[in-house]
Design a protein around this nucleic acid. Sequence first.
DNA 1: ATGATTGCAAAAGGTTTGCATGGCA
DNA 2: TGCCATGCAAACCTTTTGCAATCAT
Lengths: 138, 138
Amino acid sequence: MTKADDLTQALRDAGVRITRQRAALLTVIAGADDHPDAVELHRRASKDMPSLSLSTVYRTLTALEDQGVIQRHQFDGTPSRFEKAEDDHHDHMIDVDTGEVIEFCSDRIEQLQTELAAEIGYEIVHHRMELYVRKKDG
Amino acid sequence: MTKADDLTQALRDAGVRITRQRAALLTVIAGADDHPDAVELHRRASKDMPSLSLSTVYRTLTALEDQGVIQRHQFDGTPSRFEKAEDDHHDHMIDVDTGEVIEFCSDRIEQLQTELAAEIGYEIVHHRMELYVRKKDG
DNA sequence: ATGATTGCAAAAGGTTTGCATGGCA
DNA sequence: TGCCATGCAAACCTTTTGCAATCAT
């Protein structure tokens, strides 16, 4: 039972048709340990499915996001980038020199965010925290 | 001495030419207490400068951002929105139902962010924190 | 079978750019 | 005057969409 199989089953259960193109994309997404954009995902999935069109990639990504199977990130001005939804929430640091993405999380910050919103009568639907960073010299 | 005058002077000092279109835009930006996008700024500035072109607005906004006079925000999927740079840093909550933008800041969170980055050898160049929120019922 | 999904090509939306003209310092 | 900034139109990049053909269930 691979990770892609898990995802596939969950989708089938949700009534989503698993076409060959969606299966190919799911395999790529399940196997990715970075944060590729739609074009990159299309490039990777095309290895197994040369006829796969970019519009199908976009449509599928939207569907998978709606199903909560993947997450979409919109970093500073660049195209949307995707990763599979994990159980653990995390945020991102982006190395402004290299583009490298580092995942991190802070329960303390999340708690403070929740409190700040609550103070003015709001609850958080979702949030976005990105730290654009540079390696310290020395 | 209006706010726009202040901005104008700072720019002149930095060697930026103040054309009529830039002056018109600066007046609009200085007078805005919301977070308008480029098209909206063009609309407002056009009242005083009907010949102002949208490309000039975009070029000017980029220049002003480079000068640190304004800040660009890229909220969830929508066009970039701008506000004048203030002395005090702040972040944003966006009401997902109304689109209303609420400014807030938390020194404690900023401190935690700095610490988290430092722990892995990074320093923060800039950051972005957006809370997408909904009014609590009751 | 039949309704969802695909590929293609075209369109949309936001933003940038080449070029000749015009205007600030 | 010299060079920067402008307006226009066209290009760009990412993403979406209309349509007829195809496929999963």
